[in-house]
Design a binder for these strands. Structure first.
Lengths: 242, 242
DNA sequence: AATATACACGAACATCTGTGCGATGTCAAG
DNA sequence: CTTGACATCGCACAGATGTTCGTGTATATT
């Protein structure tokens, strides 16, 4: 898939148009905006984009096209075609420019993450990553904020066993499934010696693992590396109080 | 604003159509779906809906209509016209029904909350609620999860002064502006005696205020009621680690 | 030189689509 | 009963809209 400037422009224009008017542009509008005098050329390029899977088209239908955000994201094109303003955020992100009307509501692409269970002291995390279907609770996250979304899952925190990670009863922890951790990353780890799952910053120091709590008032813990098995990396914590 | 069954049906159909195909239906499609034989009747009813502000129309434009979700929400119509499945969540919420395809991405109505500043020990919260325009950072939240959205604002936590509330450096705290608190609510309060803003659970006990930290390992604090001024209620805490 | 391929142009065409208008039916107020 | 507002219907029309087709222009391949 190798997009010409024209095709990029078309994608950008469609995104902008839809954001602004909540319905797609016509072929002629696209042509006018992208300096294409002929409707057939627009169609030609739209066919390309559809073949590449980046857009969806309903043939013979006026304005019958839409962007496939998932594919665009997969192709790494999101930053290219998404407007810097009106960009969206689940947690936090800096909005660059001015905002005309703060009441303006928009629509944002979302994806879902399964809540695979809960996390509590004294229990291993019961994560069967293939067991996505059994989840009966889902968290919707903003697409723009998360990468490697296939590997994400969520756990609900039970009890006060994670206070030293500043994670409270009822909080939702978003994790990315991974078995190895870089130093400094906050991970969910099962500690064999303790019989506990814990959320800590991970540091491999020789054959020892140092686990540092997020709350600086708690002391570091040390375990033989063999006793610590990383279950995933903590990507986000969400606390909803009402 | 008093909607006929027909108009409700039209709204429902448009919502369903847009959700499914990401572009709006034509007048004739609406007619066919809602058992209206004449296009002009559809137009007649669309005019009604537009006058009520529930939809937006671009005259003379094919499929030139869109739903005004904010208005629909304000009119209490969201539950009526929104599909029960595919409803969205920022933080956490139980999804009732089955999910066809977990990779399905949808669009969700969002609203923005200004990040009015930061919260740190030793400083009052510099919240001028009318000062929304000066915010250069915004948090987008899921409409469905928050009520009284006009009064919401966000603060970024600076430093480790809120660890006893299980809130870390860099976290985003979503607050609802209010000056009075019910017992047990978690509030942001300025404590005159300490010269600090703090996040604590609030309890008015006689002429004293007891402030309880979210982390049970911290002791309660007591102040004369006159010294404690509530700035807002904590509605959500969001921590983004990558 | 001949051919193939990718990209672009413009005109013609058949639908699609929103709008306007006159006619009809309903129903409550006068 | 009459009137008028409201809701509906059918239809014709002008403009919009996607598609098709013949053509032209590079660039690479054979």
């Amino acid at each position: 898939m190798n997009l010409s400037d024209r095709q990029m422009n078309i994608l950008r224009y469609i995104a902008e148009f839809v954001e602004e008017r909540s319905y797609p542009p016509t072929i002629r509008q696209i042509g006018a905006a992208c300096d294409i005098s002929s409707t057939s050329v627009v169609k030609y390029n739209l066919n390309k984009l559809e073949t590449d899977g980046l857009i969806l088209r309903d043939p013979e239908v006026s304005r019958g096209l839409s962007l496939d955000w998932a594919k665009l994201d997969a192709a790494g094109l999101l930053p290219e075609i998404q407007k810097p303003v009106g960009y969206a955020v689940n947690g936090a992100a800096t909005r660059v420019a001015e905002r005309v009307n703060r009441a303006t509501e928009r629509v944002v692409s979302f994806f879902s993450v399964p809540v695979l269970g809960h996390i509590a002291a004294g229990e291993p995390i019961q994560v069967d990553v293939s067991d996505y279907d059994s989840a009966d609770e889902w968290i919707d996250l903003n697409q723009a904020l998360y990468r490697d979304r296939d590997k994400l899952f969520a756990l609900r925190v039970q009890g006060d066993s994670m206070v030293d990670a500043s994670v409270l009863d009822g909080d939702i922890v978003i994790l990315r499934h991974q078995e190895k951790a870089e130093n400094g990353e906050m991970v969910a780890a099962w500690i064999d010696g303790l019989g506990e799952t814990t959320l800590k910053h991970f540091y491999l120091e020789g054959k020892q693992v140092r686990l540092r709590a997020a709350n600086p008032n708690y002391k570091d813990m040390f375990f033989p590396a063999a006793q610590v098995s990383v279950k995933g990396r903590v990507v986000s914590v969400i606390r909803q109080l009402e």
